[in-house]
Amino acid sequence: MALVTATSAAGGIRAPRPAGLKRLALYPALIFTAAFFVLPLAVMLCISFTLRDKGVTVDWFTFANYRAFVERGDGVLLQAMVNSLEVTAVVTVLSILIAYPIAYILAYRVPARWQRLLLVLMVLPFWTSYVIRSYSWLLVLSENGIINRLLTGLGVIAEPIGMGNNRGATILGFVHFFVMLLTLTIYSNLVQIKESYRRAAADLGASPWQVLLHVTLPLSLPGVAVGAFLTFVLCIGDYITPQILGGSKELLMPQAIMRQVGRTADFSMASALSMILMGVVIIAFLFSARRLRMDRL
């Protein structure tokens, strides 16, 4: 492999860089990103400022769709965003609270030879279809499902309890999925922390809790931040889980977007709502990147 070593103006040695044809290897990724991400996004942004009536574009630049987001139907679309943020916040916090102890035990309590096997077992549910996993939860939580049958069989409850088709079921489905993701990101961060740091703290008289709170936890925050950010992004934009498990008794933002497309084909409004959702994700990214130093990961 032909590598070029360059010397900087200050006389330091630069890292080797690919030369000539090797740099062309970057172009496929650039072209792909430009063609299938930047360009469609730009088109969608432009469409979001148009206004359609009877399937025809009647205004080529207007903020009407963005105003409608706030004003339409006494704020039902705004409420969809609030619902999405609430669900996403609960899912992210719950997933972190569950995933961190799992990742900690995996990294520090489980013998190294078992760690890989347990990690594989952890991600096994990833191998099943997302849709099938959601429907499986619906069957588990349903009135005729395994939990209700068990509880009624044991005499704990007289009548089946409706556990599916609500926000709780949506959150459960999300948490089940994102705990796996967060466990992986936190685990990969924990195993990078030098053992000597934790030993030094212990030698200086720190209790195991103090080591966790003052050494391990701060150093593992980048892993938590990356996992939390991915959870936030994937959760807030997900259509399938709330559609299957939520029973459509309240709208989340992706469902509100889909409703603009379905019968009326109002792509202008759907684009505007998508751009608003993307704005929220960007804010979340900036918060994660600046406050939690994701770049250190």
Binding site: Y135, L138, L139, S142, E143, N144, G145, P160, G162, G164, N165, Q243, I244, G247, S248, K249
Partner: peptide, 22 residues
């Protein structure tokens, strides 16, 4: 009606509701 509803959904969703007892 909304106060009485346990599920609102497309055809597969309401079918599931009937089958699963929701």
């Amino acid at each position: 009606i909304k106060k009485l509803a346990s599920v609102i959904g497309d055809v597969p969703t309401v079918q599931n509701a009937l089958i699963t007892g929701a």
